[in-house]
Computed example of a mutant assay.
Amino acid sequence: MTETTFTPRVFSGIKPSGGLTLGNYLGAIKRFVGMQGQMETVYCVVDLHAITVWQDPKELANMTREVAAGYLAAGLDPSQSILFNQSQVAAHAELGWIFNCVARVGWMNRMTQFKDKAGSNAEKVSLGLYAYPSLMAADILLYHATHVPVGEDQKQHVELTRDIAAKFNHDFGVDFFPMTEPVIEGPAMRIMNLRDGTKKMSKSGESDMERINMTDDADKIAKKFKKAKTDPEPLPETLEGLDGRPEAKNLVEIYAALNDQSAEAVIGEYAGAGWGRFKPALADLAVEKLSPIADEMARLMADPAEIDRILSEGADKAREIANPILRDTYGIVGLLRGQNQF
């Protein structure tokens, strides 16, 4: 069998549940923007994933627009990247069902994120929450994506995507779906809570002071960093000196990511400095980098029709890639579809 050469293409998405945080920006959106021009880039607001748990319909629509506004305000260019919301491209759900029939129950049972989200209440959560990793695989493979920028906590889902692609190719004797590679690189891929450096920064944290929201204005950004939890010790001489100091390490990594430098370089500049020097410097840097994004998001959200237009145009472009791949998938599986149905 001849090995297929796949066009280098990036796919990734963000779920519109809760608000966007600094973690979304540094761990995802900033990286997405940076990949523009390096290869084809397809970015999505994964609203079908959001409804695996109950969502207020009006709020879901609003949050979908807010995620799109976050992408755009951070520098994503619709003329360079495809940007759309998942539910506008029906092929995601169609390929997701085919992959439900390829994936094995044992694979799903190993998904740690389901266990974390379901907790002790697994019998009462939706079937969608259990099966959503196969839809995530469909999101990726529907575009024959060769690369997916993810955090460490999502790496398992890319591994499942590769398992599904390999089983499909093997079962049908084809080399049709690529072995997608996770892209995990750069500082601050996992942004932690500003009040507890052992917990990931979350949209659903109890206190707003735990997180930086992408909609926060300059005053809020500065206040939150200046009040962020630290420890009594100054910054160390070496990066290893941050071991066992989760809050200190988190703030250093945030500074590094915002300033496009390594954590080692930050330590080199601030070694021996107390928090009275470092936290104001971090606050000033964060305001410089983040407040223009918040301002632009506010401007975009004031014109929802324009966001909807951009998402609709992006969906048209997405379907141009997705529909032929879905058509060929149907043909490989033996499902009859007329040519005019794609």
Rank of each mutant, 00 (worst) to 15 (best):
I293L: 12
L242N: 03
V67I: 09
A286S: 07
K117S: 01
G27Q: 00
R327N: 01
V150L: 13
G119R: 10
R277Y: 15
Q261S: 07
A69S: 11
E269A: 08
L142I: 04
F172H: 10
Q55S: 13
A248F: 03
L83M: 13
M35D: 13
R309S: 08
A294Y: 08
M192K: 14
S12A: 14
S134M: 13
A271C: 10
P280L: 13
E94W: 08
A165L: 07
L239D: 03
M39T: 11
Y143G: 00
M179S: 12
A294T: 06
I191N: 03
M63K: 14
F6N: 02
R190Q: 15
R162C: 15
L72E: 06
W54K: 12
F177I: 01
A315G: 06
G205C: 12
Q339L: 10
H147A: 13
H147I: 06
S79H: 13
I140K: 08
D208P: 06
Y25C: 05
T198K: 15
G334V: 04
D303M: 11
G119I: 13
G205S: 12
T4M: 05
D163P: 02
K223C: 01
R337C: 13
P178A: 10
V150C: 14
D116F: 00
C44A: 14
A263T: 05
L76K: 07
L83S: 01
L290K: 02
A122G: 07
M214S: 05
N100H: 15
Q113W: 14
M201H: 01
D116T: 05
L129P: 03
A137P: 07
A131Y: 10
A93Y: 10
D295W: 15
D163V: 04
M201S: 02
L83G: 00
L60V: 11
G197E: 00
E247H: 04
N24I: 04
I332F: 11
E206T: 07
A68T: 07
G314K: 15
Y330W: 04
A166E: 06
Q86T: 08
M35W: 01
Q86M: 13
K249L: 04
V150I: 10
G128W: 06
L239V: 09
I307Y: 02
E94Q: 15
E296M: 14
G119S: 07
V89K: 11
L83K: 04
A91V: 02
L76S: 03
D219N: 07
T4Q: 06
K199L: 09
A166C: 09
G338R: 11
I191Y: 06
P8T: 08
I82L: 08
G34V: 02
V10R: 00
G205H: 08
R110G: 11
F168E: 00
D284A: 15
K155W: 15
G314R: 14
C44F: 14
E247F: 04
Q86C: 12
M301H: 01
T5I: 05
E159I: 12
I321R: 11
C44K: 08
K223Y: 00
H49L: 12
G37I: 09
R211T: 12
T5Q: 07
G151M: 09
E288S: 15
W275A: 06
G274S: 12
E247G: 00
R211L: 03
L48W: 04
G23H: 06
M297T: 03
N85V: 09
C101F: 06
T180A: 10
P78G: 09
D219S: 12
V287G: 05
D153T: 02
R245H: 11
E40W: 04
L290H: 10
E237A: 08
I82N: 05
E237V: 03
A322N: 11
A137V: 08
I164F: 12
